[in-house]
Every structure is written in C-alpha cells, then in structure tokens.
Nucleic acid binder design. Structure first.
Length: 770
RNA sequence: ACCGGGGUGGCGAAACGGCAUACGCGUAUGGUUUAGGACCAUAUGGGGUAAAACCCGUGGAGGUUCAAGUCCUCUCCCCGGUACCA
C-alpha cells in the first residue's frame, strides 16, 4: 500500500478550479442548439460569511445540474445576490458601517467562498439587487403597475413607535417594545404604497390538477403542500353580505342567521363610535386603546375572549328580534367587512365569547334564506410595499403641492439612492434627511416638489430577478424578451419552505402581471419547485453565533476537501429534511471517498493485464447501481443515490480486479456530479483522459437487468416464515413457486393441511392462508 | 388559534400496501500496529435461548386488508409559517 498515491484532496482541488476556469468548462452558451434546462436557486441574502446552509442549498442543485449536462442538456445555472434589506441597515446603525459598503464587502467575501464549492455556476450572469442597473427596473415595473392602478396609496395597520415616530419591522420589536428606545409599540393605521395582489387572487389559486405549461409538454408541478398552503393563504370564501340595520356583515353560512344572537364589530370599524351610547363611550374607547397594543396574532388567539357592549341593538333581518352590538378585537377590520353576525350555536369562537359574556345561544334551523349580496372574499391582503427605510429601491414618485402625486418620467430613471443620509431620523424616513436629493422640480408644473422618500420592500426585487438573469446587462427593458423566450420558464426552482406564502406567491403574481403586459407568453415562472430543509448545529439547534454551534464551511473544507463536504451534505438527509451536522458521519463519508480513490489506484497498477475477466454478478450490480443513481438524481434523492454507490463499492472491493476499465469508468462517471474534483482527477491520472469527465456522456443501461435467481419471501397468515430461491425464468409461474413454498421444511411445520387460500404477487411475495 | 410538515434502532436515516431498519455513524469483539490513531474482519432493534425455535416491535388508541411505517378515524408531542427578517 505504501507505494500507492494517497487521497489528498488539497493536492488537486485548487488545481481543478483553475483548470476549469481556464478551459471555460462552466461557461454557459445561450445560443447552444441543445435543449435548455434552467436551474434556479433562490438568490442568497448578502449576510456576510458563507454558511454551511448555503453549501447544502446549492450543492444538491449543482449535482442535478451536472447530471443534466451529462445527459446533453444546455444547463443554465446562474447566480446573484439579494442585496437590499434591513440587516444592512441594522449593521449601519449598530456598527456605523454604511449599508452599501457592508453589502459590497459581503458580496466579495461570499463569492470567493462560493467558488470553492466547485459548482458549475457561471458567474458571468451574476445579478445583484442593490445596483442602479438592477433597481431602475424595479422602478420601471412599479410605474407600469401604477399605470394599471395595481400600485396605489392605501392605509394599513403597522407597528408604530410613538417616540421614534416611525414604522418598525417585526424584527425590531423586542417583547412589544421598540428596539431602539424601548417604547411600547402600537398598531397604527399608516398610509403607504400597496400592490393590488388581490386583483390576481383568483388566478393565483392553484387548480386541483397541475396544468400543462404553454408550448411545452412539461407540466407545472409544484409540491402539493405548497399549492395547498398558498390556496389556504389566498383563502377564498364565498358567502353573503347581509345588512343588519345598516351594518354589513359577511358570512359564509347565511343559513344559520336565525341563530345570530349578537353582532360583533372590530374596534376600528367606523360604526363603532356611531353605535356606542354615551354611558358606554369610555369603556369602548379604553378597549380600543388596549387593542392597539396587541399584535394581530394576539388578537386572533383571543385567549381571554375580551369585548365590550356598545349599548346599541340592531334587528336580525330574518327573526326580527333586536340583538346587541358588541365590539371585540378577534374580529379583524381588514378581513371581510370588519363585522360579523355571531352564531354561538354553530361557531366555536362565538360560543366561547357568548358564554364568557352571558349572551344568548339560540338554536338554528339551518334553513334560513336571508337576502344579501353574493360576494367572494379573500384572506389574502394587498401587498404593502413601501418601507420607511434606507437600503432599498427608492419609490419613483414625486409629491407636488399643486399636482399631487406625480410619477417620475421613465426617461429620468433610475432614481438613484443617495449615499449620504441619517439612518436614525425621527419622524421621517432616512431618505428625507438628504435635502439635496429630496427636493426636485415637479415633472408636470416645474414648481418645487419633493421625492417620495420611502423604499420598496425587498420582495419586490426578488419577484422577477430570474428573468433578469438571462441578460443582466440589458438596458432597454427589465428583461430581454428574446432571451427570456429561449431560456425560461425556470425548469426547477430550489428554495426554502419559509417562502411558500411570501416570495414565491409574489413572483407568481409578477409573472402574471408580465403576462398581461404581453412581456411573457406564460404565466407560471417555474415548472417545478423543490423546498429544502435546514442543517442544524451539532447540538441539534439552529446554528447561531450566540450559541457557538456554527459550522464554518471553510474549516471543514480545509479538513476534508470540498468533495467530502458536498457528498456529506447530499448523504446526511433528504433535501427537504432538517437534521444536525455530525462531525463523525462526515468522517465516514470521507472514508468512502478514500476507498474509491484507492480502488482506482489498484486499477492503475493492474491495468496492463489483458483479457481481464469480469465478475458477472458485479457487472449486474453495477448496472443496477447506474439505474438507481440515475433515477434518484432525477427525483432529487441524493442520499439514497449515494447509499447505492456505497453498496456497489462494498461489493467491488471484494474483487477489485474483476471489473473492466470501461465499467470502472462508468462508476466514476455516476459519482462525478457529487464529487467533481476526485472523479476528474482519477479520470485524467488513472485513465489518461484528455477531456473533462463532466462533459462526458452519462452511462446508459440498455434493456432489462436480468438476474438468474430471485428470492421470494413466504408468509403464513401474513407472517414471514421462510424465503425460497427460484430461477428467474420460473418466477412467473405460481405453480412452481407454490410447489417450492409448500415443500419448505420451515413452512411444513405451520401447515395442518392444504392452505385455504394462496396469494402470490409475482416476483414479490407469497402468502399462505390456513 | 389557524395553515403546512414531521414522529421508524443508541444516532443521521431506508422502505411502488408485500422480507421494517438498506446505507452511514456509533458500539462490541478480533486482526494489524512498539503504542495510540488509522485501517481491515465479524456482530449489532428489544425480549428469549447453549444455539435455535418463538414472542414483541415504526408516538398512542381503534379500523380497513391475505398483508399496514405506508390507507381511514380519533388522539398526543415536535418543527416551520402567520403578512415590515430574508
């Protein structure tokens, strides 16, 4: 063994990174005649150091991409950064670094680290959100949406710090208090920009059966959990709007109206003041103030079933009885009409409320047919997109004292984000602190006016970046329609399940908008969606610096090499899974690669032997392994693909010489998407190949794999009692199998006579019922 | 509270309704080694036995089926999301 080369990945991994770059191995050719395959991974946020989670998220798509390339697809696997957002601004406030400098530095660091992974990402297509060349098109899209009345000014409850006079992100609230000044945060109606996603609600609902994608035979096939999740989030309810003495309520169960024994208004409902009698006024006002201190979730939970009586009554339009009008914050103003009829006999929450406040519970006939207007309402709300923050796309609008809100003309785009601002202003957004930037002339009347000083939600950036990727330098429109036609839709979109209700829904909405604007000829941007899980720290907790359980990819790469880290991440769990990092298991995976290395070194020494005899069984095992790995990669089940290769190696090691060169190369090829460095090195040094293994053609298994002998389990009354072996040619004959089963000594013990019934599943199992 | 996803050996996990625990880790014993490590071999769900036989086993309770981790009903526990973190 001593004369053999040892597996030392450091000796060749860096070499191949350079070599592949020089040979332009991973350069994507958009004009290739091959069929395109667009692999998209959610662009990562520029948080700083590369996390082992990034490796996990990207390695599996990379394995798929490499596999697809070896199967003659023109694989497009671009990359970019989600670079706007709150953490950059938090860094600015806490550490006095400018968000732009912080972000750009992070991008440089992360890119360097990413390139170590050995992915086939072509970095020339890189797109980042925080540069004017990108965000000017956010502004362009915003203006188009404004023209279609899809972008509009509205009001919504927001987290409000009364002392800082500003809206707060959920993240910046600690135990209901502002993170900076410690004041109690309240819920306040704030005017802001919205996108009318509700106009697309109906079209965003997934059909029961996946629909065919236009111009392609492939179907849009998203996981059922995502489709159901989004549909529930859109939450369409069909029902009636019924008038109770001027108050409109929405109900999905109009037939229960004769059991409606009281009405409940949300505290913000405009009728509350009107309905409240003098002696109840103080009580109701106090209740309103209490409600502003609760988050929406606290309100929905409504643990204490709080509420107050207004002092007024309205007539139940069906029974004619007077029923009391109450105010309670478990009724939300933003949903339905902000008022409900309470039917405690039928509804759990209403019953609890009625019990708590001693309100009548009246049986319903379930036959009532009240008058009302049919209406569909949605749980989905319009998307609030303006943020009172700095690090984002400036809203391309101008506020003019004479002309009101005026859009920035297209020719004046981009509205560039100014560098100099105060990040901790009071009572106004950061952008408003730069007077030079803020003050402009009205494009309409030319008189002094002010820019809109708010920025767009970062989800705006990520709703269309996958279209920008196809030509990031295009300067006439957000995306190059010709290239988009050729390279999109996305074939498979990898990302986190936390984006089910946000990002992916918004991206679908944008796609439908572009379709309506005739910029796209399809209305679903990704044919397939795959959601990944989480790599936890070795202690089973989410990795965090404060817990000290963070695995730094650089360290493990240094210890084992990139291939081992990649292989371990593929092997540790299914892509959708969540489990903890194990320093022991990765050593085992490294052991596997070492054994692979060594068995090929032995091949090298014996390769001069002619007329090599192959072991038939081993060749069959190899064929089965190729088949299994091929299927598993296609189904993104990398962990079982690796298990199959491990099984094969275990067999092969028993007879290392009994596989031909040709077959030995095939095994190397199916391992290559997982361990691109080691396989490339062996491909060249052992087999003397001149071209890259990654451009070789994936091995095919022709025809059926036929084994001589098949093992069939024999059950008696459903319990396994023996197994029999039978020649493959006879396996289809139930008589032959029965004969063998009934002759087994082990089985005979259980038989008292002839079995009552025999069930034989050909090639699988035989069950004797006695 | 609501919506989605999960509970399988000591651990990470496999299993088109058809041999539960593949593959890997860990552990034990043996080999190799000056020693340790590394490596190699064998064993490894629990009970039971000299060894077998056999019995019990996929969070819990029922059900469907020749056959259930897998399908159905109820239930307990854990994770993610709930709209300004990305």
């Amino acid at each position: 063994m001593s004369f053999m080369n040892k597996y030392i990945p450091k000796e060749f991994e860096k070499k191949w990174v350079k070599e592949w770059k020089n040979k332009k191995l991973n350069v994507f050719d958009p004009d290739s005649k091959k069929k395109k395959y667009y692999v998209l991974v959610e662009w990562p946020y520029t948080s700083g150091d590369l996390h082992i989670g990034h490796w996990f998220t990207f390695t599996i798509p990379d394995v798929l991409s490499r596999y697809k390339r070896m199967n003659d697809w023109n694989v497009f696997f671009p990359m970019g950064y989600d670079a706007f957002g709150l953490p950059a601004e938090n860094a600015a406030i806490e550490h006095k670094v400018h968000p732009q400098d912080w972000t750009m530095k992070n991008i440089a660091t992360m890119t360097k680290q990413f390139q170590q992974m050995g992915t086939m990402i072509d970095w020339d297509w890189m797109t980042i959100a925080c540069v004017p060349e990108y965000y000017r098109w956010n502004q362009w899209i915003f203006l188009k949406m404004y023209e279609q009345s899809l972008a509009f000014r509205g009001k919504a409850l927001s987290n409000w710090c009364p002392s800082c006079q500003t809206v707060l992100a959920n993240e910046n609230i600690e135990n209901g208090k502002c993170w900076r000044c410690g004041s109690q945060v309240i819920q306040k109606e704030v005017e802001q920009w919205f996108l009318k996603i509700t106009e697309y609600a109906e079209r965003l609902i997934w059909p029961d059966k996946p629909k065919a994608s236009p111009e392609r035979s492939r179907r849009v096939d998203w996981p059922i959990s995502v489709r159901v999740g989004q549909n529930n989030w859109i939450g369409k309810s069909e029902g009636l709007i019924i008038n109770f003495g001027g108050i409109e309520v929405f109900t999905t169960r109009p037939e229960t109206i004769d059991g409606a024994s009281f009405l409940v208004l949300s505290p913000e409902h405009p009728f509350v003041i009107k309905m409240t009698t003098k002696d109840n006024l103080n009580k109701v006002k106090k209740y309103f103030n209490q409600s502003t201190q609760k988050t929406e979730m606290e309100r929905k939970e409504n643990k204490d079933k709080t509420g107050v009586f207004t002092g007024s009554y309205v007539k139940n339009p069906v029974t004619g009885k007077k029923i009391p009008v109450w105010v309670a914050d478990y009724v939300l103003f933003g949903y339905g009409t902000g008022a409900i009829m309470a039917v405690p006999a039928e509804d759990e929450r209403d019953r609890e409320f009625a019990t708590k406040h001693s309100l009548p519970i009246i049986k319903t006939s379930l036959k009532a047919k009240p008058n009302g207007k049919k209406r569909s309402i949605y749980h989905l709300r319009d998307w609030s997109i303006s943020r009172q923050r700095y690090w984002g796309t400036p809203v391309p609008m101008i506020h003019c004292p004479t002309d009101g809100i005026v859009p920035v003309p297209y020719k004046d785009l981009p509205v560039e984000l100014p560098y100099e601002v105060d990040f901790t202003p009071h009572g106004k957004p950061p952008l408003a602190t730069n007077e030079k930037w803020l003050n402009v002339k009205c494009p309409n009347c030319g008189k002094p006016a002010k820019r809109d000083a708010e920025t767009l939600d970062t989800f705006f950036d990520s709703s269309w970046y996958f279209l920008r990727y196809v030509n990031p330098k295009y300067d006439r429109k957000p995306f190059d329609e010709e290239k988009v036609k050729k390279l999109t839709p996305v074939d498979v979109y990898f990302g986190g399940s936390e984006h089910t209700l946000g990002h992916t829904l918004y991206a679908r909405f944008f796609t439908k908008f572009f379709h309506d604007e005739k910029l796209l000829n399809y209305d679903e941007f990704a044919l397939q969606r795959v959601q990944h899980g989480v790599v936890l720290g070795p202690d089973g907790n989410r990795m965090s610096k404060s817990k000290g359980n963070v695995i730094n990819p650089d360290d493990v790469v240094d210890e084992y090499g990139s291939d081992t880290v990649r292989l371990y991440l593929c092997f540790m769990m299914p892509y959708e899974g969540t489990s903890s990092w194990s320093t022991k298991t990765i050593a085992g995976v490294n052991r596997f690669l070492t054994r692979v290395w060594e068995i090929y070194q032995k091949q090298n020494q014996k390769s001069k032997i002619k007329n090599q005899k192959e072991d038939e069984k081993l060749v069959i095992k190899l064929k089965k392994t190729i088949k299994k790995v091929t299927e598993d990669i296609g189904n993104i089940k990398m962990n079982t693909a690796i298990a199959a290769m491990m099984e094969f190696l275990n067999e092969w090691e028993r007879n290392p010489q009994e596989l031909s060169k040709e077959n030995a190369k095939k095994f190397l090829q199916i391992l290559s998407p997982f361990a691109p460095f080691l396989t490339e090195e062996i491909w060249h040094s052992v087999f003397g190949e001149k071209n890259s293994i990654h451009l070789s053609t994936w091995p095919k298994v022709e025809g059926e794999i036929i084994e001589e002998e098949v093992t069939i389990p024999v059950q008696v009354n459903g319990k396994l009692r023996d197994t029999i072996k039978i020649q493959n040619s006879k396996v289809k004959s139930q008589k032959e199998v029965e004969k063998l089963a009934l002759n087994s000594e082990k089985i005979k013990k259980y038989l008292t006579g002839k079995p009552k019934k025999i069930i034989y599943v050909p090639g699988k199992i035989i069950n004797l019922i006695i």
